[in-house]
Design a protein around this nucleic acid. Structure first.
Lengths: 241, 241
DNA sequence: CGTTTCCTTGACTTAACTCAAGAGGAGTGG
DNA sequence: CCACTCCTCTTGAGTTAAGTCAAGGAAACG
C-alpha cells in the first residue's frame, strides 16, 4: 500500500488502520482466470497485492477490449456495492494475490481517517484520469503512438510502486493482450513493436521490457504524465482532509 | 437535480439540503467557451443546470478528442480540489448555466445526508462506467457502430433527465463534434449518418434528432444500457447509506 | 521431447482518411 | 430586402493505415 503514499504522507495511525483493514485473508487467482464477471453483483473492493489484472468488456460477437490494467497497490472500486451488477469483468493476467475489502472495512477506514479518505478519493480520481487518457489514446493516436503511450503509462505506474529496475520492467502482456488494449490486431502490434525496436527505443524479450530511450519513447507517444498525478499531491491538505 | 433520484428516493430533508447547496449564484457560459482549462487548478465541482458541455483533451499537434459529454443534472468531479491541476479541459457546447459547489458545500451535504453521499458516489460510478464504455466503443466498434452507440447513449441519458420528447431530442452536436467524440473525420461521420438515414433508423435535421427505429439502432450499436445504471439502484440501501 | 502458445513475415484487401469543390442555411450589414 | 459571409453539410476521387489470411519459426510448458 505504498501507493497511497504518493498522495500524502500518512500518519503511523493511518498506516496501522490500513494494515488492519487489509489484514484479511489473502486470495489468489491463477493467470487468465476471472476475478469478477460482468452481470454479477460485487460487494467488495479488491486491493491488488501482487500480479497484474485487467478490466475488460466484450461485445456480443466476441470482440473484446481491455479497459484498463490493475497493478499492485491498485484498489478497484471502493464503492461498487452501490451498483446492482458489474458492467464489465476483471480478469487476472498473471497469478494475482489480492484482499477483499468489504463495505464495513472501507467505512471503518474512512470514518476514522480523513487522510485515508482523501487518499482513496485521489486513487479514484487517478483511475478516472487514466480512463480519459485511454479515450484520447484510442480516439486520436495512431498505432505506433498508442503502443508507445501504453508502454510509457505502464512504466511510469510500475515505477511509482517500485516495480521497475533502472529502465527495465516486467511485461507479462502478450502481443495479443496489447492488441486488445490498444484496439489493434495482434499482427499490427507486432509490426509496431518491430518499429520501436528498429528505432532503438525499446528492447522486449520474453516477459521483460527495457526502455532504451525514454525521452524518445515519450516523444513518440506524446506522453504527458500529468494525468497520473504522482507528485505527492495531498501535501497541501491538512489532517482534516 | 432529478438526476440523483435515479439512484434512490431522497427524503424531503435530503432534497432541501440539496436545494440549499445548489442555491448559489448561477453562472453562465456562451457556447464554445471553456469552463475549466487543462493545467489550471480547479477547486469546485460544477453542477450543470442546462445546456451541454464536454470534456476534452488535446495532443501537442492539435488533434483533439472529446472525452465525454456533460448533460443537465451531471455533477463534475465533486473531489477535484484534491488534485493539483486539471489534466483535461471542460468546454461548453451550447450556452450552459451551472452552479459551482465548493468543498464546503459538498462536505456539508455528505456529512449530514448519507443518501446524498451514496447518490454522489453512484453518480461517480456511472461516470466511470460511461468512460469505460467509450473505451470499448473507440477500441472495438467500427465507424457506424460507434456513431449509433453515441446516439443511443445520448438518447438514454437525455431521457433519464426528461429531455426527450417521444423519439426526438435536441442534438446540438455538429458533425465535427461527433467526429471528435468518435475518433473519425467529419467527412466519414457524414457518410455514416447518411447510412443510418438510408437504413431508416434516424432523422437528423438542424439541431434535432428523431430515432425512427430504436431497436434497430440499438442493434447496430450493440447497445446495452446496463452501464448507465439507471434502475433506481439505491433502493436496496437503507437510510444509513 | 512433444505440444501448444506466441511471435514473425509476406501478400493482399479494406475501412477510413485526405483533398477538393460545391450546396445549403443562418446570420449580418448595407 | 437583398447581398455577402461564414459555417456546416454533402459528394466524389484517390490514398493510406491498418486489417486479413496464411504459413513458418521460436519459445515456453508439461
Amino acid at each position: 500500500m505504498d501507493r497511497l503514499e504518493h498522495f500524502a504522507r500518512l500518519s503511523a495511525d493511518d498506516r496501522e488502520a490500513l494494515e488492519a483493514a487489509t489484514a484479511g485473508p489473502v486470495l489468489s487467482v491463477r493467470p487468465r482466470r476471472d476475478i469478477v464477471r460482468e452481470g454479477e453483483r460485487s460487494r467488495v473492493a479488491n486491493l491488488i497485492l501482487d500480479g497484474w489484472a485487467f478490466r475488460y468488456k466484450t461485445l456480443a460477437d466476441g470482440r473484446r477490449q481491455i479497459i484498463s490494467f490493475l497493478l499492485p497497490g491498485d484498489i478497484c472500486d471502493p464503492y461498487v456495492y452501490i451498483l446492482q451488477e458489474m458492467d464489465h469483468s476483471i480478469g487476472a493476467l498473471t497469478a494475482v494475490r489480492y484482499v477483499e475489502l468489504g463495505r464495513d472495512k472501507i467505512e471503518a477506514l474512512t470514518s476514522q481517517h480523513p487522510r485515508l479518505t482523501q487518499a482513496l478519493r485521489w486513487d479514484g480520481l487517478v483511475a478516472a484520469a487514466i480512463q480519459r487518457e485511454w479515450t484520447l489514446n484510442l480516439g486520436q493516436r495512431d498505432a505506433i503512438e498508442r503502443l508507445a503511450h501504453l508502454l510509457c503509462e505502464l512504466f511510469f505506474r510500475l515505477r511509482a510502486v517500485r516495480l521497475t529496475d533502472q529502465n527495465r520492467c516486467e511485461m507479462p502482456l502478450t502481443q495479443s493482450d496489447v492488441a486488445e488494449a490498444t484496439g489493434m490486431t495482434p499482427v499490427h502490434v507486432n509490426r509496431m513493436i518491430q518499429e520501436l525496436r528498429a528505432r532503438g527505443l525499446i528492447r522486449w524479450k520474453g516477459r521483460e521490457v527495457e526502455v532504451l530511450d525514454m525521452e524518445a519513447l515519450c516523444d513518440v507517444a506524446m506522453f504527458n504524465p500529468n494525468y497520473l498525478h504522482l507528485n505527492r499531491e495531498g501535501a497541501h491538505l491538512d489532517a482534516n482532509g
